[in-house]
């Protein structure tokens, strides 16, 4: 099996899992209420997030062939995504300004005059395409990292909070050890040691970001354990594992969602900083910003690279932050109004 087909399978699996979760969520009153409220309160932000997800999906499905690479054998066997195919063959030789018909410095005529909405970069690649492709990387960073960090944190936090004693001591020690190292430095050290692949970066981000949620889950479990309904379940002879799965974890799910949304923006911002240190993921907006920094000091300055990546990053984070705020408001037991 080739790499591209494997990645397609993973994408399909994730998509299926996401849809199933969504369907399960819709069946539950609480989550349905969240959907409805979100749609009412933050329609625009939701729309923006949905747009980013669509673009990312378009860039995730790839296959080989079907594109005329002009005799380039390597290019012939390169897997291309839907997005790549939409922009196929629109390469210039070097910089061009947005919607220009000539090169920026050389003033040579472009192959696609007026065809580059956001201009091209030093290698003549379409900036719009690069920006759109960044969406996939950003969602990958947020998604994959959360997928590693949140279950881990949930596992440790819940068991520490529920059983206490030695387990709690152990988890608490690991947590305070990790939390005491400066986050950015730890992140950098991890990436340097683990390598610079996407998975390694996500793993490093996960290691540095699970502690916060673990602490939260531990504290909440501690509280839930004392709740009367857990006591009633124990009086009914329900086993510990069943109590954890039926009572504790479902009552932490709102925290999982809040954490996921709030963590997301932090992760993407961290990756931007890593990119600037040369430790980021290939094709991320952070990397684009990092490269564009030098281009800004050229004369006349190349600004569209930076602007495109910056705006794309800012818009996504803004939308996510707004959604996150709303989700927290809807789910936070302190602000929630129980209808009576």
């Amino acid at each position: 099996m080739q790499l591209w087909s494997a990645s397609n399978l993973v994408v399909a699996g994730l998509l299926l899992a996401g849809l199933t979760l969504l369907l399960i969520g819709r069946r539950h009153r609480l989550w349905r209420e969240v959907f409805v409220q979100l749609r009412r309160r933050r329609p625009l932000a939701l729309l923006v997030v949905a747009g980013y997800v669509t673009v990312a999906l378009l860039d995730s499905v790839r296959w080989v062939g079907g594109v005329d690479a002009g005799g380039d054998v390597v290019a012939q066997h390169e897997a291309r995504s839907v997005l790549d195919r939409l922009f196929a063959g629109r390469r210039e030789r070097s910089y061009s300004a947005p919607l220009a018909d000539r090169e920026f410095y050389g003033h040579a005529p472009l192959r696609h005059p007026g065809g580059h909405l956001l201009g091209t970069d030093i290698l003549g690649r379409d900036v719009l395409l690069l920006t759109l492709k960044g969406a996939r990387v950003a969602l990958l960073i947020g998604g994959l990292t959360s997928l590693i960090a949140i279950p881990l944190a949930l596992l440790f936090g819940v068991s520490a909070g529920y059983w206490g004693r030695r387990i709690d001591d152990g988890v608490f020690f690991v947590m305070s050890t990790l939390a005491s190292m400066p986050t950015l430095l730890l992140l950098i050290a991890l990436v340097m040691v683990l390598g610079r692949s996407t998975v390694a970066v996500c793993l490093a981000l996960a290691v540095t970001s699970w502690v916060g949620f673990c602490r939260l889950a531990r504290g909440e479990t501690f509280k839930l354990r004392e709740m009367d309904y857990v006591q009633a379940a124990r009086a009914l002879g329900v086993s510990d594992l069943r109590i954890l799965l039926r009572h504790i974890v479902p009552n932490l799910m709102h925290l999982v969602v809040i954490t996921f949304v709030l963590m997301f923006s932090g992760l993407v911002l961290s990756e931007a900083i890593l990119s600037w240190l040369g430790l980021g993921i290939e094709g991320s907006w952070g990397q684009m910003i990092d490269q564009a920094r030098d281009e800004l000091s050229r004369d006349p300055a190349i600004w569209w690279n930076l602007a495109a990546a910056g705006v794309a990053l800012f818009t996504l984070l803004l939308a996510v932050n707004f959604v996150g705020d709303a989700v927290r408001d809807i789910l936070d037991p302190r602000t929630r109004r129980e209808p009576t």
Partner: peptide, 27 residues
């Protein structure tokens, strides 16, 4: 068996009435 003081706190907010009542039967 036991019945607690605060009926809100002694019912899992994420469970339906049927599942709450049936919980002991299952175990």
């Amino acid at each position: 068996q036991i019945v607690f003081q605060d009926p809100m706190a002694s019912l899992d907010p994420r469970m339906r009435a049927r599942d709450i009542v049936a919980e002991g039967m299952i175990s």
